[in-house]
Design a protein around this nucleic acid. Sequence first.
RNA 1: GGGGCCGUAGCUCAAUUGGCUAGAGCAUCGGACUGUCGAUCCGAAGGUUGCGGGUUCGAGCCCCGUCGGCCUCGCCA
Length: 607
Amino acid sequence: MAIAYNKRTCDCGTLRAADVGRQVILAGWVNNYRDHGDNLVFIDLRDRGGLTQCRFNVDTDPEATKLARTLRKEDCVAVRGEVIHRGENVNPKLPTGEIEVSIQEVEVLNKSLTPPFEVADHVEANEDLRLKYRFLDLRRGPMQRAIIMRHKVTQAFRTFYYNEGFLDVETPILTKSTPEGARDYLVPSRVWPGKFYALPQSPQLFKQLLMMSGFDRYMQIARCFRDEDLRADRQPDFTQVDLEMAFVDVDNVLDVVERSLAYVWKEAAGIEVPVPFRRMPYDEAMRDYGSDKPDLRYGMKLIDVTEVAGRSEFKVFRDAVERGGVVKAICLTGGGEMTRKETDGLTVEIQGVGAGGLPLCKVVSEGGKTILQTGIAKFFPEGLAGDLIAAMGAKPGDVIFFAAGRFGDVCKYLNWLRITLAERRKLVPAGKWEFLWVVDMPSFEWDEESKQWIFLHHPFTMPRDEDLPRMESDPGSVRAKCYDIVVNGVELGSGSIRIHNREVQSRLFRMLGISDEEAMAKFVHLLTALQYGAPPHGGLALGLDRIAMLLSGTDSIRDVIAFPKTQRAFCPLTECPSEVDAKQLRELGIDLAPEVKAKRKAAENEA
RNA sequence: GGGGCCGUAGCUCAAUUGGCUAGAGCAUCGGACUGUCGAUCCGAAGGUUGCGGGUUCGAGCCCCGUCGGCCUCGCCA
């Protein structure tokens, strides 16, 4: 090799004025080139560490300068030269801006085609193009920082939990399909034609088994797979910080998890987070915020105005109340300045969420009195309007938004509205981290479709001790020993204390209309293990992608995943999923459905 | 599965009410330039307006279908 690129003296972000005079070897990519004619050429060389300006002078190094002139963006090169001070020409924008390297020798390690988009910090390209050329996208500063942030988060979690005595144990990727919950990704097997493994939705059952095995503190950075529709914060394969502890109750789990989060925020991002975190019962979260993951960085609580609204002449409200529903409202301080166009726009949008409309009225001051105006104000006679204003704590200049109907629907609409208003009107304070435990969720929920009770969490979640006697008589009142950790309106993770007693587990399955035979068929390994001295245990799983996303300041987990998939679970880089050979299918004993074949043929003919 | 927004040069965008040869910035290529660092200056090249159909004298624009992307509801124990 012309230049010993395997003996780089440092990376492109480290050289300073103190290094002037040193002979250095650098390697990296051409970030930019500036050709000043016969004598002078500049190349900005970039690697993971940063940028270093390389100077080529034809008078002193004609060969190198000649070659430098042919360099283009994203060429991979190695250079050798002397660190010199820039004198009058320091660049304060660069950490290395005091120096440059006067290049004596340059070697092109590999030319680059013209990139399909500019490899620059400020990116303009569409995300799907960036995903197709992810290896180029990942060269960009913000992406490098995001991936590095993720690494720091991972490392901090490991350090913390290892220091707390947690054992890192791997669990199978090929495992058993469980039809409950999310859809499984299935894996066929040549050795077992007609049978399938499933990729784990989480290591849930295995980590419980590890507790029964006596490894009383377990953690794993675990890949999980769910074949469901995607979102900005959901990928088909994602990563959990999975943990489980034996001989614990709720407080033990919350304590160690919140300390781990505080440690990670400090270590990875330098942010101090006070512990313990606030706790809020699920009912309170739903009542005040209409959400099981409320964002506490701003106010705009939901206020129940069912009583007042029921006395109004507005038919929508009266109907809702008569049908046993609720009317709730939020007050937007200073919202009176919103234009008709803005509120009409919100109406259309909230209809997209499912609401019939967006009733509202403005609070104004007139003749020394505070009154309601516009919108549905006319349905509130003076006295009633006063009651409403008092209930809302509204002041002149505010706007009151309403939602009426079933409790769940009202929550959905006003939660959407609260979040949307906070974002649009910039009511979200920067740099604030509002951690919150949401606890005491119901164990069961009545499902209208199947006309039976279904579990809200998973079927191994322990009900609260004092609620156990009511499991059969009043299932709706049973609260679970389960907990969600939320920060700034984002659910970071959830967990529970598990059932460690076979009798309780059987009672619970019976209650849900699942026979013992059925339960055994699905969960034989767990149910059997429960009978051999299973210890009390519980745990939690944290969404690593979301944590990395929040600490990177992005709003999509795709930004902290090196090779993510699109919303339709397609990878533009590898172009997967893809078709496979007929031979592969034959070996697996699999035939495609006729309609799938027909569709494929039609697509081929078109192409 | 439902709703919304979007698709024009390699990239990001523009194109008046449906009307002349579809434009601009960046990137690319050629040339100039000794201190730039988002270099600058001069010039060139670059288009199946995602795809298919329809309406029209005339479609980037209107209509229908389809493909793809993002957001969202459902879904995600």
